[in-house]
Design a protein around this nucleic acid. Sequence first.
DNA 1: CGTTAAGTTGAAGTGAATCAAGTACCGTGG
DNA 2: CCACGGTACTTGATTCACTTCAACTTAACG
Lengths: 249, 249
Amino acid sequence: MASLPPTGSMTSSRKAISWPVGKCDFLRCLTVEAIEDFESIAWSKSFPVGTMLFTEGQTPAEVFILVQGEVKLSVTSVGGKRFILRIAQPGEILGLASVFSGHSSEMTAEALHHCDVAHLRREDFLGFLGRYPPVHQFAVRELSLYYEQACVRLRTMGVASVVAAKLARLLLEWSPERNQRERNSLIRMALTHSEIGECIGTSRETVTRVLRKFQRQAIVEMRGSTLEIIDRPALEECAGVSGAVLRSH
Amino acid sequence: MASLPPTGSMTSSRKAISWPVGKCDFLRCLTVEAIEDFESIAWSKSFPVGTMLFTEGQTPAEVFILVQGEVKLSVTSVGGKRFILRIAQPGEILGLASVFSGHSSEMTAEALHHCDVAHLRREDFLGFLGRYPPVHQFAVRELSLYYEQACVRLRTMGVASVVAAKLARLLLEWSPERNQRERNSLIRMALTHSEIGECIGTSRETVTRVLRKFQRQAIVEMRGSTLEIIDRPALEECAGVSGAVLRSH
DNA sequence: CGTTAAGTTGAAGTGAATCAAGTACCGTGG
DNA sequence: CCACGGTACTTGATTCACTTCAACTTAACG
């Protein structure tokens, strides 16, 4: 794994950007030739925890490719109330919709951990996509996945009337794909209760109460910052709108 | 304006598909050459009110381009509860995300009025897009707009705690772009109160109550199936947003 | 080791769902 | 022409889930 440029955090460097390709699907889909081309137009950058990569309102003519770390994508209303749209994972392209639509992204991106990103200007990225059709195809596919995920979130927010159902859906969404068939699955909770509340539009206290209830019902178990799903069928029952489980205290 | 094929509703015809291009942005962006190509791979179809173009669960290997009429895109949960994602307008490409992602669309499309559509197989559409880069660009741009709209809807569902705010945002979203600067603007309500409720995840009765409240406060006026926004600033006040976000698209 | 942020729990108030009982408005057929 | 049935809309009463406020415990961190 190549090290990051020695310029330190919050600084840019044009040359020598050999990122750790590991978990980044975007970099993985590039040919050697494409990588070289990409490195000539992209900057490497590191952000410490809590940094805003971009905020809503500003018109970012840039694209960020998340190489390492997680980024919280959220929107804010005038009342200061925040809503978390998605937690971007390594490999995701931040500002992708803006690249294609030409609009400003109208969301805020905040580093959840220390993050390594590649960033480049919108026109450069579009030109790059034009030169490598497979990469363009990858980007379009990514966009369609973001859209589909947004629809799933919308379904959760719209169909689930009670908070327990929304939270259950969120946990199921977060539980790793590969563990779906197993009875238990671990979730690393990078978010605070307050932030979980902002994912499903509820208050900090209610998140606590519902999580406690799930724990008392032996549906989940919480140890430190990890949450284990003990009884997946019961959680799926909660996620549905049957209400039978929800009514029992 | 060319007439529709004489085969009648609910039937397909391969030849002579000269659609009314009028309100359909997709057809408008095609060159004469592209139109000819398109007509060789697409079918014309008409659907009466209430027809399901496709339902969730089934894997549609097809794409629909909405030429005329409106289509209700919704998802359903196990409890029979429905949530309306979007009302597709003429020019929209139904199943676009599935085309690019390869997944099944997981939503239901129902004709709100009598609809004219062009439909074609996924592979044929992808091939067509490959032959006409400007059209491909148009399609990708459309997808990014759908994504941005989904994010706006998510924001509405997430940050607005009270129903009045959600409904206010929905009405502002529906009010025509060209009337934004005018004080009043008319909205043709194609949906029942029950369906409006399904757009914002609330009950039929509550929609009635909130609309009545808006009317009593002289914010809106309802005459038959049209709704007029009398006091836009007040409605934006209810929405709890400057309105700048809703204007974007 | 003290300060701050995060989590927990109880009590009170409220907005909306639900249930119930209407009214208004169609298109249909007698 | 009006009775008819169906659907949409309206309104009130009750119940309940969640928010809010407040006090408190626990964990994190320099």
